[in-house]
Each structure stands twice: as C-alpha cells, then as structure tokens.
Amino acid sequence: MKHLLSTHDLDVPTVAAIMNVADHMSEINARSVPKVPALLGRTVASVFFEDSTRTRVSFETAAKRLSADTMSFSASTSSVNKGESIRDTIETLSAIGVDAFVVRHASSGVPVSVTEWTDASVVNAGDGWHQHPTQALLDAYTITRELGTGNTLAGVRVAIVGDIKHSRVARSNIDLFARLGARVTLVAPGMLLPAGLAGPGITVTDALDDVLPDVEVLYMLRVQRERMDAGLLPVGGEYSARFGLDERRARMLSGDAIVMHPGPMNRGIEMVMDPAELPGSRILAQVRNGVSVRMAVLFRLLGDGQLGA
C-alpha cells in the first residue's frame, strides 16, 4: 500500500511497524536538534481544502524533521475558489513534483479520488466524517505507550464519548482500536450515533456514568457548536450535563485512567472543566506523538515506498 487513506489499510503488523518507527521518531524529536536527513530531496505537499492549523502544522513539522521539502496549498489562498477543480490542483502540483500529498477535505472520499490523479503517495489528513487515519494511529500509539501495552491494545477498555456520527476521528479510532484488540464502548445520545457501528469488541450506551469507573482510556470527542445551533441537540446545557466531562465525572475515573481528546476542545460543551486539572490528561502527549507518528508514516511511505510491514 503506497497510500494511507483509511484505518482499513492498517493491519496489525503494519501498525506495529509504524509504532516501532514512531519510537525512533520520538527519540529524534527529543534531541536538541530534532532533524534527520532521511527524506532529503523529497517533497511533501499538504493540500488542505478545509482549514486545520493543527493537523497541517503537525504534518509539515513531521516532513521538515525528516528533511523533506514541504509545499503548502490551502483552499482559502488558492484558485479552488476560482472554480479550479480538485483534480486540476492535484495534477498541477504533481507536475511540479510531489512525492506525497497530505490531503484534507470536508467531503468524505476525496483522498480516495486523489489517488487516481497522481502517482505520488496520498495520506488522508481527514476527509468529511469518513476517516482520519493518522489521528487513529497517534491515539493508539499514545495509549500503548502510556499504558505500556507494547504494540497492542488487547483487552484495553476504551470509552469514546460524544458526537460519533459526525466524527472522522471516531470512525478511525473505533476501527483501529477494535482491530488492535481494545474493548470499545461508544457513549453518545441516539442522534449522534449512526446505526451499524457496533460489532466485535464494540458496545454502545448512552449512560456515561455507568462506564466511567471501569475505563482505562476516556476519549472525549469534539462536539461542534454548529450542531447545537442546527437543533441537533437538546436545549440548554443538557448535552453537557449528560455527556460532558466535569469534575464529578473526573473523580469517578480510576486513578490511572487516562483522558484524551483530538482537539480543538470545546470548553463548556464536552469539556466542562479545566483539562489542566485532570491528572489523567494526555492531550499534549497526543499532540507530541502526532508528530512522531506522522514522521513514521511519511518515512515508511516515502522511504520504503509502502506502509506495510
């Protein structure tokens, strides 16, 4: 596989290989000069048709620490606004010379289509509600390294809480965590929970308090304010009262449970307390690991020409 489009591309040995390389990258990132010449002369183009400073910076940092050249294209500053098609954009950049495209788009499936328009590797940096595979990898990596479980999540009890329906992070994480052996509980109100997601190792509930004492990982999803405005959620603070993380709920967690969030957080909706007060918070570790994991993905795709082990 020369692309990373979906967590479905990631079998267990491939994930283990990426995690091992990510360990190398973490070592490099801890140095005073965190840069290696591995991808010298390669070009990584980040093509973001949807704004995302965090993910873009993470990918571009990863590319630069591997000495790749970076090319940056965003819809707001580009000719896409003038009606240029995605295909034209990709073909044009390919002609300039790109070894890997990092693609983000508000529409599900766009990175899949991009693979048909270029010979370069394509990394999905988030498409619609569909997938965000490097987020799933960095989350799985963070859990394994925090809990010391090696390269597996076998038996690890994870609760994913919030807007699952509109979340590419949820789709990616549910799939990858389950493949790595985790026992995943999805916690959401019915209208944020699409049908058909339950499966082996995956259970569904809307009772957060029942789940908290037993989980090792509490994964809070972002709930966009627009959803609230669109009349999707009940009036007032009812969503936060039922599904938000507040101090009372934080105390219900076991002492060594960790709390994660893909960012950016919506204070007052899913996060009803100061995350700095959460001893189990690994939110910044996720961000740090994000660079290591994206370096590992780029190194494997561009260095070895394939993701797999």
Binding site: N20, D23, G303
Partner: peptide, 22 residues
C-alpha cells in the same frame, strides 16, 4: 545508534529501523 534515517540508500531498499538510538 540506529542509522536508518541517515542512510544514503533510503528507497533503494527497505530500511527498517530496529530500535531507537540510545
């Protein structure tokens, strides 16, 4: 020390880092 990231034959053959440098 692991030298995978410094090799001059990256992409000419599979380069699999073994363990991080210490």
């Amino acid at each position: 020390i692991d030298v995978s990231m410094y090799r001059d034959d990256i992409s000419m053959r599979p380069v699999t880092p073994v363990a991080p440098s210490r």
